[in-house]
């Protein structure tokens, strides 16, 4: 490489990275700036927008509901997906491609389309079963399937499921013991990954809740934004930081392992075509 070309490349890299960094950091910084503004022009910085969060009972209720949804979704996802994936690995390997395809399908179906199809189902459930915001968990489990599947698949690939289960079975363990006391503790990292991803996705979800007329955190933030922009942006920043922290923890966690699973998946790697959160 010639000297001139090396210099040109370095200049190009610095310019692109600085511009990119500015484009991505400025809007987040601007939210902080906006949320600490005073009421009048020239008023000093204040944390008023942040302290008034607690004076909105609807908002606090929505935060509680969203956290509940996140917890229910994570647990339901694990209970549904983990035993199935282990079972398929051990006893039904011919079903593996089907399960994988079904799990990754929500990536390519636009969220708004799923809502259109789910709205009669939800109307039926609200009338015939019980009408509560926690019904959203049913849809959210579908929404987090692709991400959870990848995390769990990476975890299962990293351990020798077969040997572990054979050893446990030959010592007289039942299938429940094999799954929850032998295999699950050996892939705690993957379980954590899948749960954190689910929590982050559920806390940021707007489309399903808004169109199925439930008030979750994002819908409440949106409606509050029409009345009190400062506080709604303060809550946005808080929820964003929370989700960022979860996702950053996890991106440093199992990235190296997860990469292999993505390539085998055969579908787009981040596969964001469904626009889950967007």
């Amino acid at each position: 490489m010639t000297r001139a070309r090396r210099l040109r490349l370095r200049l190009f890299r610095v310019i692109v990275l600085v511009l990119g960094g500015a484009f991505f950091l400025v809007p987040i910084g601007a939210m902080f700036e906006f949320s600490t503004r005073g009421n009048r022009v020239g008023a000093p910085r204040t944390l008023e927008a942040w302290t008034t969060i607690v004076t909105y009972p609807d908002l606090l209720g929505a935060i509680r509901d969203s956290l509940g949804l996140a917890a229910i979704t994570s647990v339901a996802m694990l209970l549904l997906l983990l035993p199935t994936m282990i079972w398929v690995r051990l006893r039904l390997p011919q079903l593996k491609r089907t399960i994988e395809f079904l799990c990754l399908l929500p990536l390519t179906i636009p969220a708004i389309v799923l809502v259109v199809g789910l709205s009669p189902v939800y109307r039926w459930m609200a009338i015939n079963l019980v009408d509560t915001i926690f019904l959203l968990s049913f849809a959210y489990v579908v929404l987090v399937l692709p991400f959870a599947y990848r995390a769990l698949d990476a975890g299962l690939s990293a351990i020798d499921v077969k040997t572990l289960s054979e050893a446990a079975r030959s010592l007289g363990a039942g299938w429940g013991t094999v799954m929850f006391r032998v295999i699950a503790p050996n892939m705690s990292g993957a379980l954590l990954n899948a749960s954190l991803l689910s929590v982050a996705l559920v806390l940021g979800e707007f489309t399903f809740a808004n169109l199925l007329s439930y008030l979750n955190l994002q819908v409440e933030i949106f409606q509050l934004g029409l009345a009190n922009a400062g506080t709604s942006i303060a809550v946005s920043v808080a929820s964003l930081m929370f989700a960022f922290i979860l996702l950053v923890i996890l991106s440093f966690f199992g990235r190296a392992r997860a990469r292999g699973a993505h390539e085998r998946a055969g579908l787009p790697f981040p596969g964001a075509a469904g626009g889950g959160l967007r």
């Binding site: 991505f24 400025v26 809007p27 987040i28 601007a30 939210m31 700036e33 906006f34 949320s35 982050a200 996705l201 940021g204 979800e205 707007f206 489309t207 994002q218 933030i221 949106f222 934004g225 922009a229 709604s232 942006i233 946005s236 929820s239 964003l240 960022f244 996702l247 950053v248 991106s251 440093f252 990235r255 981040p270 964001a272 626009g275 889950g276 959160l277 967007r278």
Partner: peptide
């Protein structure tokens, strides 16, 4: 890592971020 996080970013929060900017 940042791209993995930001590629999933969107919705109300993103709209607010640009309104604040």
């Amino acid at each position: 890592s940042a791209c993995g996080v930001l590629a999933q970013f969107g919705g109300v929060t993103l709209a607010f971020a640009f309104i604040a900017t």
